[in-house]
């Protein structure tokens, strides 16, 4: 009898081991249906110009999985999405690619550029009254908001065609700030910038950057209030600042401005100088126009702030050159030319 029990136990164990071994025949065709969706003209354009050559996926149709569901947003107008993507290709992709090739780093863009681009028609309205215009996730995905207002300019009744082109140039230049900003995050996340950078404005970073105005940010060594959030945002805002203040980088422009002496102090005189837009950012650093006296004044500690900013520039520019073979000022010039071509301004 004992033997029978042992046999029964053995047979039942065998049955247990084999019970889950379900040998259904696999189908020779996948049961998973990949829904390619409806392909319209813009989809074809994206596939041909961005997906095949650069491995970029663009989503401009509604997909709630790609946006933060606590915010209410909408897809962009199809014609605005197309306009933005054409600009993205010529002003952003092609310029970085050309600069990388010129610097001897031809794989740079394909290797690091965000592979998923989400386009949203409106801004993301935040509860604190601010709006979000761009988001990046882990270096792979970038979301660009407010596509409906891309390159939309308000012209006056006396505006000429050339005036409108210049307004459009300025608007487009600013539109790519988010992409420059987010791409710079990928760079510093891939190769750290030197630790000395963090020492320059140590103690000035704050989560309350929304309470700080632009001039105060300047006096503390920051290009924008948002730069004050932390070292990484500071880094990418400077890169984006260089690449979005591109006017007159190919041909300097004669402008009147308040004169500053060799120590950076305002002399009270006006001077005409040939400058680029980026030169102007540095020249007007911490300068305020007093509407009562109708004179320019220097905010307290503006010179110290500029000094700190230049120290950071002197780390960022070589960092890009040495690590990525990217000359930011050369890229600045390429971007200006690309925007000029896009809006139909004769190349400066």
């Amino acid at each position: 009898m004992k033997k029978i029990y042992i046999l029964l136990i053995i047979s039942s164990l065998l049955a247990v081991f084999s019970a889950c071994d379900k040998e259904d025949n696999l189908l020779d065709k996948s049961v998973i249906k990949v829904n390619r969706g409806y392909f319209n003209e813009l989809d074809e354009w994206i596939y041909k110009n961005l997906t095949i050559p650069y491995n970029i996926e663009v989503k401009y149709k509604w997909d709630d999985g790609e946006v933060i569901n606590t915010f209410h947003v909408i897809p962009p107008k199809v014609e605005k999405a197309k306009e933005f993507l054409e600009a993205y290709l010529t002003i952003w992709v092609k310029t970085y690619e050309a600069e990388a090739i010129a610097g001897g780093n031809p794989d740079y863009l394909q290797q690091y550029m965000p592979k998923l681009l989400i386009l949203v028609g409106c801004p993301q309205y935040n509860s604190n009254g601010t709006v979000t215009l761009g988001l990046a996730e882990g270096g792979r995905k970038v979301t660009i908001f407010d596509i409906d207002n891309f390159a939309v300019v308000k012209s006056g009744p006396t505006s000429t065609a050339e005036d409108i082109k210049l307004l459009k140039k300025k608007s487009i230049e600013k539109s790519f700030h988010t992409l420059h900003h987010e791409f710079a995050h990928i760079m510093h996340q891939t190769k750290f910038y030197p630790d000395e950078y963090k020492e320059i404005c140590k103690g000035s970073y704050t989560g309350n950057w929304t309470d700080i105005d632009a001039i105060t940010a300047n006096t503390r060594g920051f290009i924008t209030p948002y730069s004050m959030l932390n070292e990484n945002e500071d880094f990418v805002e400077i890169v984006a600042g260089i690449l979005t203040n591109t006017f007159y980088t190919n041909t300097s422009h004669l402008l009147e401005m308040p004169e500053r002496d060799e120590n950076g102090l305002l002399t009270g005189n006006t001077v005409s100088r040939e400058v680029s837009e980026w030169d102007l950012v540095l020249h007007y650093w911490g300068v305020v126009f007093n509407e009562d006296t109708e004179e320019y004044e220097l905010a307290p500690k503006a010179i110290e702030g500029l000094d700190k900013f230049k120290k950071k520039l002197n780390i960022i520019v070589p960092y890009y050159k040495n690590n990525w073979n990217i000359d930011l000022y050369s890229l600045q010039r390429r971007i200006e030319r690309a925007i000029d071509d896009f809006v139909g301004i004769e190349n400066s």
Partner: peptide, 23 residues
């Protein structure tokens, strides 16, 4: 059922603004 691309007849009732964040 998703209406995936922007169209002005439905979306004017959807589009958010700063004063009207859910349209």
């Amino acid at each position: 059922l998703k209406f995936t691309t922007r169209n002005k007849l439905l979306h004017w009732l959807i589009i958010p603004s700063s004063m009207f964040v859910e349209g």
